[in-house]
Write a protein that binds this DNA or RNA. Structure first.
Lengths: 189, 189, 189, 189
DNA sequence: CATGAATGAGCTTTCATTCAT
DNA sequence: TATGAATGAAAGCTCATTCAT
């Protein structure tokens, strides 16, 4: 019989506040007190849910990683390339819909201790590589295109995200089509 | 002819030391004293060349931006697409040759005050967009491919760089060909 | 007959828990929550019985002072020196039997605000001084021995206790005889 | 060519300030800033000489232990018991002359992590035990008196010190004679 | 120019205490 | 009574920056 809100709900409130604050001023310049204020609680209360400032960043990263988990959960229909198209589109849309989370991802780079970005990218590449291999087997791809190109596709998405975060004139949503034209249509036989 | 090294030379020694240190432990965890030690000088002396810790990061960023300044300075020869191929290749090689600088670029994201990443990306996109427009005019591109796709190409390079920095198993050099196959060969008519 | 245990009984349960915890890690490093956990109750409940953390230490000290209250309550039989022998022996045994309380006594020194150790020592010296005066009057003591030597006897006991607490190789029980030989036999005419 | 004062001198200034402050309000209630203020320097400067607050207490303890190192360094002259008399007297005088250090010793008990009091007592007992054994061999002691009684003598001194610290009415200096009468004269054959 | 001791603002973290349930 | 989530004052420690030498 918890007092009012259960641990998980309160934890997520704090995480949501942290995402906002970190996105606004960067993790390095964000104080625990800023997060607490944004969440409408006292500084010390943050520590009832997260053991340290770093854990807060890790928490945000995890929630991001979960969100960005390939929407490929959806087995999809159609050819492998169609499903690749769908996966890329879904990923871009997800990222465009959560710019704050995406912005914090960049802070994760500077995190100390380092958080496991490698694993996240590995999973993304894996999901795409699987589709590429399948498409190649079905003869849908140009000669010479295969699993190694997954990194390029993941990179194109990530790189466009970065540009959109750095430059308000660049819209990630509007880059969805160009990405697909280059990364999907461009590799088709 | 002052003491032994002139102001500029000493400044660059310090910048070189800063790149090494920042790349090793991240900007956030790097102290002025670490940089001074790496440069073999005293902490206070750093301030004779840089007004603040942030200025040091800015200096490193500027030297990176200069390096990454499109090798397009070289007007090059051949068709626009050939020159695009050359530009992408040169950029990837430059990045692969300076992993420390590249690593620090990510810290620039977390910098406070923010440094002008937008401008750097803008210039990269501009150089590539020019070639795309020229190639399109020459009828070398598939229909629908043009300036907006410059962001995708820049992104693919940047995104592959990020993956290679995050994951020692990913080699940027080895991604050069896949990038070209997708981003250059893939847009050819 | 309230709930299950009356106020006093519950207070003493908490005090017993406090002694254990304080003896284990020292007062300075002991948190109210540690004491509550040891007592099997919630943190906040401690405050229903003690107004503050300091009051907890004071409570432990008082219970110690009460215990160490000269067993001289027993008027005893035999000569004054025999009764002194008995008193010293009883005191040492009491201390040896309650090492936790004794350990906490040392924390009382570091307490802020200070607790009245002076009074406790005064009472100990008083009880012993009375016996010394009586013994002197009966001609049982060497010339020059009297009330001022009570501090030495109290000190010898206290000092041996301290050594036994500091060093597991020193056993207070085994020091009982040496103390008596020096402090009682040694002052006999 | 140090700036103005050498490390060691400055370290001792800080230690001296620490002793004063700790003696005045107890270690637990003493803040680093209090010590710095007493030493006339800034808070942060303390950390140039001591790595932590605990190290400050350890430093004070060490300087105390050094001071209290048996004045027995003096091989002395006369019988073993004469030398014991001299040693006890010198020890008491040293303690009486440095009440601040002695007061801090009690805080050392509450220290976390614990400092090695056991070793200090061991050395004191050892010095005295040596004299007792020598005196026994020379037939100067009552039957049954020997090395184990060293703990009683050390304890008597320590215990008297404690009483004098707790109670301004008790003077350690004035207890020197009673201690000698009980602990030295009392064990003589 | 070079140095590195000194400074002190500022941050993270802890925990005694309170109080709504 | 009992609870434990919430609070916020307090303190240890770090480190960018300054400046006397």
């Amino acid at each position: 019989m918890p007092k009012r809100v259960d641990r998980t709900a309160r934890q997520e409130e704090i995480l949501a506040a942290a995402v906002k604050v970190f996105a606004r001023k960067g993790f390095a310049a964000s104080r625990i007190e800023d997060v607490a204020a944004e969440a409408g609680i006292a500084k010390g209360s943050v520590y009832l849910y997260f053991p340290s400032r770093d854990a807060l960043l890790a928490g945000v990263f995890e929630s991001y990683a979960a969100k960005s988990e390939p929407a490929s959960a959806d087995p999809g229909t159609g050819s492998a390339l169609d499903r690749l198209d769908h996966l890329v589109r879904a990923t871009v849309e997800m990222l465009a819909a959560h710019p704050d989370h995406a912005r914090v991802l960049l802070d994760v780079w500077a995190s100390n201790p380092p958080l496991d970005l490698a694993d996240m990218y590995r999973r993304h590449r894996g999901a795409i590589a699987d589709l590429l291999v399948e498409a190649a087997a079905a003869g849908e791809l140009r000669t010479g295109i295969g699993a190694p190109h997954a990194a390029v596709i993941v990179g194109a998405i990530e790189g466009c995200l970065v540009q959109s975060l750095a430059d308000p004139d660049v819209s990630l949503s509007e880059l969805a089509e160009p990405i697909l034209q280059v990364c999907v249509a461009g590799i088709r036989r």
